Simulated assay, not measured.
Amino acid sequence: MAVFTEVSRDEATALLRRLGLGTLTDMAGITGGIENTNYFVSTERDGQRHDYVLTLFERLSFEQLPFYLYLMKHLAAKGIPVPAPAADDRGEILHRVQGKPAAVVDRLRGHSELAPDASHCAQVGAMLARMHLAGQDYERVQPNLRGLAWWNETVPVVLPHVSAEQANLLRSELAYQNHLAQTPAYEALPRGPIHADLFRDNVMFDGGQLSGFFDFYFAGCDTFLFDIAVCLNDWCIDWASGCADAQREQALLNTYEGVRPLTAAERQLLPAMKRAAALRFWISRLWDWYLPREASMLKPHDPTHFERVLRARIQAL
């Protein structure tokens, strides 16, 4: 989350009133993240304060966005704690600000837990499994736009910016993942809508209890195992080394399986999917680091972190 497009108070006021959300009282750009323009906005309605997040989508198109927004609406209706998009009097949840697609969603209570323990990981595992099951009857379909096809397109773009050793690792791991994707075991993996970016800063806790998942704008239809691997690579590692933290990892997997047991194919390919998830975020961070976009408050993430995670996952085999 950053600010690529400056939104005036008048523009925000007009949108919030059109959505029946009250009168704008506070508005502040959100730092962190690198994809969309985000603002915290607060309103007064019926004598009470209400808090929301206003997002302008900088890369996703009007045609792509209904998948994400209606997925959030679908999951919220199933009891999964995710931000519900606000609709206008015609029921539309995708809006327009400065010619760009925009949405306003509820702001979840609580805060992100950036130093999680086994208890936090256990709560994430159980809710992730509930989310996967709740999304199985979601009718819209859209591929994971940061999946294997995107990796194949983007690696050649970042190769000129890395060392020879790093380039060799990128090429070899990409070749491994392309081969893996053609195997019967991979084809047997259960699939459906996934979050695909469920890092610690995309989960909220309130009083030690998980209060919601948010930022679904990398979601897509892919393997549930990839979603699990993304979580394990962020929630359950030693930050300095990139190596797995066995206690936190087992806590997340145990509670996940308490809701949705893994299949034999998933158990077989979990180590490979951890590598895939590390590769995906190493590539995207290289891309954002060396080919950045201009934005107020833009803070690209250090790509070397996921290089360490990938090397640790390979060495653990």
Rank of each mutant, 00 (worst) to 15 (best):
R9G: 12
R9S: 08
A12P: 08
T13E: 14
L19G: 06
G20A: 11
M27V: 13
A28S: 14
I30K: 02
G32E: 15
G32W: 15
I34W: 15
T37Y: 04
S42W: 11
V53A: 01
L54A: 06
L60C: 12
Q64I: 08
P66D: 08
F67M: 08
Y68L: 09
K73W: 08
H74E: 10
H74Y: 10
A76K: 11
V82L: 11
P83C: 02
D88F: 01
G91P: 04
E92M: 05
V97E: 09
V97N: 09
P101A: 04
V104K: 05
V105L: 11
G110C: 01
G110W: 02
G110Y: 02
P116H: 03
S119Y: 07
G125K: 05
G125E: 04
G125A: 08
A129N: 10
L133T: 13
A134G: 09
E139M: 14
R140H: 15
P143S: 04
P143I: 04
N144Q: 14
L145S: 03
G147C: 04
L148P: 03
L148C: 05
V155H: 00
V158G: 14
P160H: 14
Y176V: 07
H179A: 01
L180P: 02
L180N: 02
A181D: 01
Y186L: 07
L189D: 00
I194W: 06
H195W: 04
L198W: 03
V203K: 00
G208Y: 04
G212D: 00
F213N: 09
F213M: 11
D215N: 06
F216T: 11
C221R: 10
D222F: 01
D222N: 05
T223A: 14
L225W: 04
F226Y: 02
D227F: 13
L232Y: 05
N233P: 05
W239G: 09
G242N: 10
A244C: 10
A246R: 10
R248D: 05
R248W: 04
L252T: 01
Y256A: 00
Y256K: 00
E257W: 02
V259G: 00
R260W: 05
L262I: 03
E266A: 03
R267T: 11
L270Q: 01
P271G: 06
A272N: 01
R275T: 01
A276D: 01
S284Q: 12
R285D: 13
L286S: 11
P292H: 11
A295F: 02
A295N: 02
S296E: 13
L298A: 06
L298K: 12
H301T: 13
P303C: 10
H305E: 15
F306E: 14
L310V: 12
Q315T: 14
A316Y: 06
